[in-house]
C-alpha cells in the first residue's frame, strides 16, 4: 500500500475515535451503555459516508462497507426466514417437542402431515451437492416452478387482465350530458366536466393504442401502425411522468440520510 493510504487510514481512525468519545459523552438513553451507543452511532455514520463515497469512485472504504453489508445481510435474511418460516410455520405442525422448545403453540390440524412434503423436497434440493443423484434436485425445482405457474396464471389473469379491462369501460360522456350541454360549456377548468370527459377519452384511446403497440403477430403498418405509434407515445408519456414523479421520492431518501448525518450524528441542526 502507498504511504498516502496509511495516512488516510490513520486520519479516519482518529476521527472515529473523536466521534466515539463525544457521542458516548453525550448519550443518554437506557437501551445500551453509552460506550456501545457512541460506537454504534459513529459506526453508522462512517458506514453512511463510506457508501456515499462510491458516487465519487470505488475506494477501500466502500469495499469495506460493501463486504460488511453482504455478510451481515445474508445472515440477517437466513435468520429471519428460519424463525418465521421454519419455527413459525413448519415446526408447530410437525413436532410437538420442538414447538415446546421454541415456545410455539402446537397447531393440531388434520392435514399437518402434508408439511413433510416441502421438507422432503428441500432435502431433495440439497442432494444437488452430490454429483451422482444431483438430478433429483430438479424435482424440487419442478415443484416450485409448477406452483409459480399455477398461481400466477390465475392471479394475473384476474388483476392485470380482467380487472383492468373492466375498469376501462366507463362512459365517455359524463352521466346526463348528452353532448349538447357539454359542448356549450367548454372550459379547461381542471375540475370541470369537459376536462373530466377529456380524461376519459384520453384513457380510452390511450389504452387501445397501448394494447395495439404490444401486438406481436401483426405488421405495424397502415391504421394499425399509426395506432401503435400513438401507443408508443402514450407509453413514453407514462415513462416520463413516472420518472419525473420518482425524482422527488429519491431525493427524499437522501434528505433522510443527510438528516441522520447532520442531526443525529453531528448535531448541527435541531
Amino acid at each position: 500500500m502507498k504511504r498516502s493510504t496509511y495516512i488516510v487510514m490513520a486520519v479516519m481512525a482518529l476521527l472515529f475515535a473523536v466521534s466515539w468519545y463525544f457521542k458516548a459523552a453525550t448519550y443518554h438513553g437506557n437501551v445500551m451503555s453509552p460506550l456501545v451507543a457512541g460506537f454504534m452511532i459513529t459506526l453508522a455514520a462512517f458506514l453512511t459516508l463510506a457508501i456515499i463515497s462510491f458516487v465519487y469512485q470505488d475506494n477501500p472504504f466502500y469495499k469495506f462497507a460493501e463486504h460488511l453489508f453482504v455478510g451481515i445481510s445474508a445472515a440477517f435474511w437466513m435468520c429471519q426466514s428460519f424463525w418465521s418460516t421454519i419455527v413459525g410455520n413448519l415446526i408447530p405442525r410437525i413436532s410437538t417437542g420442538l414447538s415446546k422448545y421454541f415456545g410455539q403453540p402446537y397447531r393440531d390440524e388434520p392435514w399437518n402431515f402434508v408439511y413433510w412434503l416441502p421438507v422432503i423436497l428441500g432435502i431433495l434440493l440439497l442432494l444437488r451437492l452430490s454429483s451422482k443423484i444431483g438430478w433429483v434436485s430438479r424435482w424440487a425445482l419442478a415443484f416450485i416452478v409448477g406452483t409459480t405457474a399455477g398461481l400466477s396464471f390465475i392471479r394475473y389473469l384476474r388483476s392485470d387482465f380482467m380487472e383492468q379491462i373492466s375498469s376501462t369501460m366507463v362512459p365517455l360522456l359524463a352521466a346526463g350530458n348528452s353532448g349538447e350541454s357539454l359542448l356549450s360549456n367548454i372550459t379547461l377548468s381542471a375540475t370541470g366536466p369537459f376536462v373530466a370527459m377529456l380524461t376519459n377519452w384520453v384513457i380510452f384511446l390511450g389504452v387501445i393504442c397501448g394494447i395495439v403497440y404490444f401486438f406481436f403477430s401483426k405488421e405495424h403498418t397502415g391504421l394499425f401502425g399509426r395506432a401503435s405509434r400513438v401507443g408508443i407515445w402514450i407509453l413514453m408519456i407514462t415513462f416520463g411522468a413516472a420518472f419525473g414523479y420518482t425524482v422527488m421520492g429519491r431525493i427524499t431518501l437522501l434528505v433522510g440520510r443527510l438528516t441522520f448525518l447532520y442531526k443525529d450524528w453531528l448535531g448541527l441542526i435541531s
Binding site: I165, V207, I234, A241
Partner: peptide, 12 residues
C-alpha cells in the same frame, strides 16, 4: 390521464 392509460395497457 395518459399515465393511467399507459399503465393499464402495460398491465393488460
Amino acid at each position: 390521464g395518459p399515465n393511467l392509460a399507459g399503465q393499464r395497457a402495460i398491465m393488460i
